[in-house]
Protein backbone atom coordinates (compact mmCIF):
# COMPACT_ATOMS: atom_id res chain seq x y z
CA UNK A 1 0.00 0.00 0.00
CA UNK A 2 0.99 3.61 -0.50
CA UNK A 3 1.32 5.67 2.68
CA UNK A 4 1.45 9.40 3.32
CA UNK A 5 3.05 10.31 6.65
CA UNK A 6 2.96 13.56 8.59
CA UNK A 7 5.22 14.51 11.50
CA UNK A 8 4.03 17.26 13.85
CA UNK A 9 6.47 17.05 16.74
CA UNK A 10 9.82 18.79 17.22
CA UNK A 11 13.03 16.85 17.94
CA UNK A 12 13.55 16.05 21.65
CA UNK A 13 10.09 17.50 22.45
CA UNK A 14 8.09 14.44 21.48
CA UNK A 15 8.30 10.87 20.28
CA UNK A 16 6.91 11.86 16.88
CA UNK A 17 10.14 11.38 14.95
CA UNK A 18 11.13 8.13 16.67
CA UNK A 19 7.72 6.60 15.99
CA UNK A 20 7.52 7.91 12.42
CA UNK A 21 11.03 6.67 11.57
CA UNK A 22 10.40 3.20 12.97
CA UNK A 23 7.06 3.07 11.17
CA UNK A 24 8.64 4.21 7.90
CA UNK A 25 11.40 1.59 8.18
CA UNK A 26 8.78 -1.09 8.83
CA UNK A 27 6.70 0.06 5.85
CA UNK A 28 9.62 -0.19 3.46
CA UNK A 29 10.72 -3.53 4.94
CA UNK A 30 7.17 -4.80 4.45
CA UNK A 31 7.14 -3.90 0.76
CA UNK A 32 4.95 -0.80 1.10
CA UNK A 33 5.78 2.57 -0.39
CA UNK A 34 5.80 6.06 1.09
CA UNK A 35 4.32 8.79 -1.04
CA UNK A 36 5.90 11.54 1.04
CA UNK A 37 6.77 12.43 4.63
CA UNK A 38 5.34 15.86 5.38
CA UNK A 39 6.60 17.95 8.29
CA UNK A 40 4.01 20.34 9.67
CA UNK A 41 3.56 22.55 12.74
CA UNK A 42 6.61 22.13 15.06
CA UNK A 43 7.56 19.04 13.04
CA UNK A 44 9.42 21.36 10.64
CA UNK A 45 12.27 21.50 13.18
CA UNK A 46 13.09 17.90 12.16
CA UNK A 47 14.77 19.43 9.10
CA UNK A 48 16.95 21.88 11.03
CA UNK A 49 20.49 21.21 9.83
CA UNK A 50 22.35 22.59 12.84
CA UNK A 51 21.29 19.90 15.31
CA UNK A 52 24.03 18.27 17.37
CA UNK A 53 22.64 15.11 18.94
CA UNK A 54 23.97 14.20 22.39
CA UNK A 55 27.02 11.97 22.06
CA UNK A 56 26.04 9.66 24.89
CA UNK A 57 22.63 8.67 23.57
CA UNK A 58 21.92 5.74 21.32
CA UNK A 59 20.21 6.10 17.98
CA UNK A 60 18.95 9.65 18.42
CA UNK A 61 20.57 11.24 15.37
CA UNK A 62 17.18 11.68 13.76
CA UNK A 63 18.48 13.94 10.98
CA UNK A 64 20.75 11.11 9.82
CA UNK A 65 17.89 8.65 10.05
CA UNK A 66 15.66 10.92 7.96
CA UNK A 67 18.45 11.32 5.43
CA UNK A 68 18.84 7.55 5.29
CA UNK A 69 15.13 7.39 4.41
CA UNK A 70 15.61 10.07 1.75
CA UNK A 71 18.48 8.04 0.27
CA UNK A 72 15.95 5.25 -0.27
CA UNK A 73 13.86 7.57 -2.41
CA UNK A 74 11.42 8.87 0.21
CA UNK A 75 10.60 12.55 -0.23
CA UNK A 76 10.93 14.66 2.92
CA UNK A 77 8.75 17.75 2.48
CA UNK A 78 8.78 20.55 5.02
CA UNK A 79 5.81 22.93 5.04
CA UNK A 80 7.34 26.13 3.73
CA UNK A 81 4.91 28.40 5.60
CA UNK A 82 5.46 26.60 8.92
CA UNK A 83 9.18 26.25 8.22
CA UNK A 84 10.35 29.70 7.28
CA UNK A 85 8.58 31.41 10.17
CA UNK A 86 10.45 29.06 12.50
CA UNK A 87 13.79 29.69 10.80
CA UNK A 88 14.01 26.52 8.71
CA UNK A 89 15.14 28.01 5.39
CA UNK A 90 16.92 26.77 2.28
CA UNK A 91 19.29 28.91 0.20
CA UNK A 92 16.49 30.41 -1.89
CA UNK A 93 14.56 31.58 1.19
CA UNK A 94 17.76 32.71 2.92
CA UNK A 95 18.48 34.95 -0.07
CA UNK A 96 14.87 36.13 -0.38
CA UNK A 97 14.66 37.20 3.28
CA UNK A 98 18.32 38.31 3.52
CA UNK A 99 19.12 35.90 6.35
CA UNK A 100 22.67 35.00 7.35
CA UNK A 101 22.60 31.24 6.73
CA UNK A 102 20.47 28.54 5.22
CA UNK A 103 19.42 26.11 7.97
CA UNK A 104 17.71 23.29 6.09
CA UNK A 105 19.45 19.92 6.37
CA UNK A 106 20.36 18.12 3.12
CA UNK A 107 17.77 15.55 2.10
CA UNK A 108 14.82 17.76 3.10
CA UNK A 109 13.00 20.23 0.88
CA UNK A 110 10.63 23.12 1.48
CA UNK A 111 7.27 22.51 -0.19
CA UNK A 112 3.79 24.00 -0.12
CA UNK A 113 0.89 22.66 1.92
CA UNK A 114 -0.56 21.41 -1.35
CA UNK A 115 2.09 18.69 -1.27
CA UNK A 116 0.53 17.34 1.94
CA UNK A 117 -2.90 17.16 0.33
CA UNK A 118 -1.52 15.73 -2.93
CA UNK A 119 0.36 13.03 -1.00
CA UNK A 120 -2.77 12.10 0.97
CA UNK A 121 -4.88 12.05 -2.20
CA UNK A 122 -2.37 9.74 -3.91
CA UNK A 123 -1.95 7.45 -0.90
CA UNK A 124 -4.07 4.59 0.37
CA UNK A 125 -3.39 5.51 4.00
CA UNK A 126 -2.53 8.71 5.86
CA UNK A 127 -0.80 8.36 9.23
CA UNK A 128 0.19 11.32 11.37
CA UNK A 129 2.62 11.45 14.25
CA UNK A 130 1.52 14.23 16.59
CA UNK A 131 3.59 16.35 18.92
Amino acid sequence: MKYALAVHGAPYASEAAAHALSFADALLAGGHSIERVFFFHDGVYQGLGAQVPPQDSFNVDTVKRWQHLAAQGVELGICIASGIKRGVVNEAEQTRYELQHPTLAPGFELVGLGQLIAAINNADRYVEFPA
Binding site: F40, H41, C79, I117, A118
Partner: peptide, 19 residues
Amino acid sequence: SSHALEQLEAAMVAAVFDA
Protein backbone atom coordinates in the same frame (compact mmCIF):
# COMPACT_ATOMS: atom_id res chain seq x y z
CA SER B 1 0.13 28.56 19.52
CA SER B 2 -0.04 28.61 15.73
CA HIS B 3 -1.79 25.20 15.76
CA ALA B 4 -5.26 26.49 14.89
CA LEU B 5 -4.07 28.87 12.18
CA GLU B 6 -1.86 26.25 10.54
CA GLN B 7 -4.66 23.68 10.65
CA LEU B 8 -6.96 26.18 8.93
CA GLU B 9 -4.34 26.94 6.28
CA ALA B 10 -4.18 23.22 5.54
CA ALA B 11 -7.99 23.02 5.43
CA MET B 12 -8.11 25.83 2.87
CA VAL B 13 -5.48 24.12 0.72
CA ALA B 14 -7.41 20.84 0.87
CA ALA B 15 -10.49 22.73 -0.30
CA VAL B 16 -8.51 24.24 -3.18
CA PHE B 17 -7.80 20.63 -4.19
CA ASP B 18 -11.58 20.17 -4.44
CA ALA B 19 -11.72 17.96 -1.35
